[in-house]
Simulated scan of single mutants.
Amino acid sequence: MGKYLNRVKSRFGSDTRGLLDGGRHALLHTRTLEFDELRPYVPGDDVRDIDWKASARSGSVLIKRFVSEKHHKVLLVADAGRDMTARTPGGELKCDVAGQVLGAMGLITLGRSDEIGMVYGDARGSVNIRLRRGETHIESMLHRYAHSDAHRGPSDIVCQLEYVATHYRHAMLIVVVSDEPDVDDRLAGVLGRLAARHDAMWAMIADRPATAVGREGGYDVASGRPVLGGAAADPRVIAAYERAEQRRRARVTELLTEHAVPHVTIAGSAELRRCIVELTGVFSRAG
């Protein structure tokens, strides 16, 4: 594997079995011809999968295990704007954690022979990478995302979602990777359009709280200005800020739940596997 996939693998691990097995729009096949492994028979297995020759040699009943019977067309939709240069609660760059999430989804598709592509960008527009299969393709996508930081514009994930809603008409699985979005009519409108045609899930990279950084409470990477300024030392201001953040997160959760979009918030790369397993598990149970 290339350096980006290897970096993700060191965090996420190599076991991707059972992930992304659900979804309304999975492309169904009666059986792939790609053999995976033999395992012991357990009650409830399809008897047609018993390998009688191998069972006779081993002295126990063995089942042929195949790669997943459901395949997806997976489209990663990623924010590559200025907001992704902010820090997570653990101090990592949000774009680095986002790259780990994108890579983890790539590893999952490798094990399933899914097609995968990506749309990324900022408020100025979107870059479209066509759907393909294979390790080299995924490594190239991760490389391009990692090197998209030379001239970042303002973040606007709705811009990328609008691009997808306009240019991708066939049903697929959309995986959005961004910071925690602000809820407004634009976001609600495009989510409604996408949810009507596609499966979707959303991995949000958490911001470091403004109250946790510096005497002025941290700064907004979009404007370069302090978030709280001199009021950062006022307990009433801090309490009001925390209440506003709770309301904002509640609005995000309400909107995504309304459109049946599984979602997680990831505070850092140490949470990568747990959060991705949780996210894809919700998706699989919904399929």
Score class of each variant (00 low, 15 high):
1 M>L: 06
3 K>Y: 13
4 Y>D: 01
16 T>C: 12
19 L>E: 05
20 L>W: 00
22 G>F: 05
30 T>K: 11
38 L>S: 09
40 P>W: 01
42 V>P: 15
43 P>N: 06
56 A>Q: 01
56 A>W: 14
56 A>C: 02
60 S>C: 01
63 I>T: 01
69 E>L: 04
71 H>A: 15
77 V>E: 04
78 A>H: 04
82 R>Y: 02
88 T>W: 06
88 T>K: 03
91 G>D: 05
92 E>K: 04
96 D>M: 09
104 A>K: 05
104 A>N: 02
112 R>V: 13
115 E>H: 11
127 V>P: 00
128 N>S: 13
129 I>G: 08
137 H>C: 10
138 I>L: 06
150 A>G: 13
154 P>L: 15
163 Y>M: 09
164 V>A: 06
174 I>K: 03
178 S>V: 05
185 D>V: 15
199 D>T: 03
202 W>F: 15
202 W>A: 14
205 I>A: 08
206 A>S: 09
209 P>Y: 03
209 P>E: 02
211 T>V: 06
213 V>M: 12
215 R>K: 14
216 E>T: 14
226 P>Y: 04
228 L>Q: 04
233 A>T: 07
241 Y>P: 03
250 A>I: 11
259 H>D: 05
266 I>V: 15
269 S>N: 03
271 E>W: 05
272 L>V: 12
276 I>F: 00
276 I>E: 02
280 T>C: 12
